[in-house]
Amino acid sequence: MIRAMVVDDDALVRLGLTDLLDSDPAIEVVAQATDGFHAIEQATTHRIDVALVDVRMPRMDGITATKHLRTLPHPPKIITLTTFDLDEYVYDALAAGSDGFLLKDTDPAEILRAVHLVAAGSAMLHPTAARRLIDRYHHTGRPQATQAQTRIAPLTPREKDVLALLAQGDTNADIAQALGMQESTVKSHVSRILTTLGVTNRVQAALLARDAGLTS
């Protein structure tokens, strides 16, 4: 059972997402929160596996909340929710430790799929929005490509192959099929990649790979 939390200051959005998540027999919404402070309180009280966190909220926004949630003894996986066209800080949320992001109007089936993927250790980035967002920040030159290239340099050629596919949003199963590897071997590679790069999750590794020009 995946224990979920919905964090949004809009009551209708909270209720809608809660009803959707509870419709999946493998997901249980154990907490709701109206802002970042409330989310941290709830995550301290309840064991949360996956938190869906809005970006723009009063008192404490989703980016700041993500940073704090990631420091908890048992940090939840985090999916950032965004309207995208209005939110300019999703890149910062991902860099803060979010495991992915979704548009609020994403198809309900995809939201459920995202929760399952993230709970299993994969990332979930809305395909079109992710590319547009990352490309936008790449054009501003942040972070520096040379710094990213230096950080990925210690990786083996095979690990770079895995990282390149990971950066495209492929799951462990997808990577295993593409590279002719066992899924357990892919998991081991991903673990070593995260450790070598000094990042906390697949999304941060993917952003670093893109910064380094490992994938388009």
Rank of each mutant, 00 (worst) to 15 (best):
L12Y: 07
L20D: 04
A114L: 08
V7N: 02
G36V: 09
G198D: 12
L208C: 10
V203C: 09
T171V: 02
D85Y: 10
I175S: 00
I111V: 15
M181Q: 14
E28P: 05
L94E: 00
T195D: 13
R131T: 13
R202L: 12
R142P: 01
A129L: 14
S191A: 15
R56A: 15
R113S: 08
A43V: 01
H126N: 10
D10H: 15
D61Y: 03
R70S: 07
A153S: 11
P58E: 06
T156Y: 05
R14F: 04
P58C: 08
L72Q: 08
P58T: 04
R142L: 12
P75E: 11
K104M: 01
R3G: 07
A209K: 08
Q204E: 12
L197W: 04
A123D: 10
S184V: 13
T200I: 10
I193R: 02
D105I: 11
I134S: 08
A212F: 13
L112H: 02
L194T: 09
H74C: 06
V50E: 03
T200Y: 06
I152E: 04
R202V: 10
P143Q: 10
L103K: 05
M5R: 02
I111C: 06
A212K: 10
R136V: 00
D161C: 03
F37I: 14
D61G: 02
D35R: 04
D135F: 04
A96Q: 04
T140P: 02
M5V: 04
G169H: 03
D87H: 09
D85R: 13
H46C: 08
Y137D: 03
G213N: 15
I193K: 00
A95G: 05
A164S: 14
D85L: 09
L103M: 12
H189L: 01
M124P: 00
V13H: 10
I40M: 03
L194N: 05
A205G: 05
